[in-house]
Amino acid sequence: MVVSANIPLGSSHFLLKFTHKEKLPEMLPGQFVQVRVDNAPGVFLRRPISVNFVDKQRNELWLLVQKVGEGTRKMSEYKTGDVVNMLLPLGNSFTMPQSTQSRLLLVGGGVGIAPLLYMGSLLKQQGCNPMFLLGARSADGLMQIDDFKQFGDVFITTEDGSAGEKGFVTQHSILQQHIDKIYTCGPTPMMQAVARFAQNNAIECEASLENKMACGFGACLCCVTQTQSGHKCVCSEGPVFNTKELSWQI
């Protein structure tokens, strides 16, 4: 894959766009890629990154990345034209709703908003009207808001009240409206709070997990999560799980 753009988003995130000389394979919302980070001496394993968006017309893959450690910092230095080795696409996907009339809420926090943009674009394409509820610590942590607005209404919470409603996503007034299904991705405590809300209100809820991985394709069994039917690999049996299936104490 060849880097076609590297766009900083605030001080700690960046958006990478990649293209390829051949047509990109079909990618599903919720799937991820495993990026090999070269020339970073402290990085041994690949870095799993969610598919943020696929621009089919431009044959482009977008990855929204947070600078966390040496690997993602190295990725933040990628320049247009750099060639990057990645395995793709990996993992399962969010499931589409049964009806285009369903009221769908996509709840994201921090860099966890990444897969929701692609999911939202496909929902819109299928005739749904998804709503997005995006949370951040403060206004400068909000990203891609204009992109999300192309595909549905956007609701915002910030912990400090600098944008949208003050508080956590689970405190937003939109949750008082009728919702048929929730898709969520973000920090685990946030997803667990969303899953608890869904459970208490009998709403279907799918969550995309991001456990630490080695291989990314179900061989090493390192990234497991506990489910009602035992340990499952987040990489190959997830990353998306129906929250009823997870053994979360919520």
Binding site: N211, K212, M213, C223
Partner: peptide, 12 residues
């Protein structure tokens, strides 16, 4: 069932 998560740590 194997051990509980986390089961992996990257090292030098």
């Amino acid at each position: 069932e194997g051990n509980a998560y986390p089961r992996m740590a990257e090292t030098p």
